[in-house]
Design a protein around this nucleic acid. Structure first.
Lengths: 143, 143
DNA sequence: ATACATGCAAAAATTTTGCTACCGT
DNA sequence: ACGGTAGCAAAATTTTTGCATGTAT
């Protein structure tokens, strides 16, 4: 009963010995608060709204550093650009609604378990995984 | 017992009403034969080896058209560039060996089934999905 | 014949990098 | 003080596009 919910990214950066600078603090805050999966441009927009003058190159560099340290996850989904989210306390997967583009998180212990099983059959240990399910709303209650 | 193994991409293009031009024929052949997941540059290299003079813009355009028609799949894996494969007769997922970068295909009906189940619980029909498991060889028989 | 496809070069979009100055530890 | 970091601009990379010409159907 020690951890409240999640350590903030800033805390986790500190634990890794990364410096918490002004720009970085803002970027980390934006990532902590994001409930979606913004790309670099969107991150930069949000960062700039909090504190103007932070260069987009800094956002790119920070994303690379955070990803190297395993503090954020990089996604691609259907679109081209890279999109990011803070590494969640508990792993989850994603539904992507193809009609709206909306991303919905979900988790299934059964899927997690079976993946382990299959990987072991192939002689592998899982490092990480990524499951994206592209969906549309069930058509039964249509007009 | 009508289909031999798989219809060639060229055949499937024809069925969709896409024109089979010279450059396109070569690109489709390369895709048909590829057992890996080449990016545009690599595709262009292979295409050029068969027939020089085909512009990389044509490869890009063709990939976009084929993807729109659902004839190829676009991946991202860990790296930046988009990578492609002809849509397989039967869907499969991927292991990515993080130590070597090698991509291994696999399939689990159980995983397929559970995904359906979960999607339905959320009120969705599955359009497609993508599962990538990043792995490393099991460590038990180490030196 | 006509709509679609290609080549080429230019442009757009995305990401990285060199360099100097700055700031966190 | 030291070494990582930021800003800025330039460069590198990846992808798209306008346009004139060519070609499959």
């Amino acid at each position: 009963m020690i951890n409240p919910v999640t350590n903030s990214l800033a805390e986790r950066c500190r634990q890794k010995g990364l410096r918490i600078t002004g720009p970085r603090r803002v970027i980390l805050r934006v990532l902590d608060r994001a409930k979606d999966h913004p790309d670099v441009e969107e991150l930069h927009r949000r960062v700039s709204a909090i504190e103007p003058g932070i260069n987009i190159a800094t956002v790119y560099r920070t994303m690379n550093i955070l990803a190297e340290h395993g503090l954020i996850e990089r996604h691609s989904f259907s679109d081209g650009r890279a999109r990011y989210e803070a590494v969640p306390e508990e792993h989850h997967d994603h539904f992507i609604n193809v009609e709206t583009g909306q991303v919905i998180e979900f988790r299934s212990d059964e899927i997690e378990r079976i993946q382990q099983e299959i990987a072991h059959q192939y002689g592998f240990d899982i490092v990480s995984h990524r499951l994206e399910i592209y969906v549309r709303p069930t058509q039964k209650n249509k007009k």
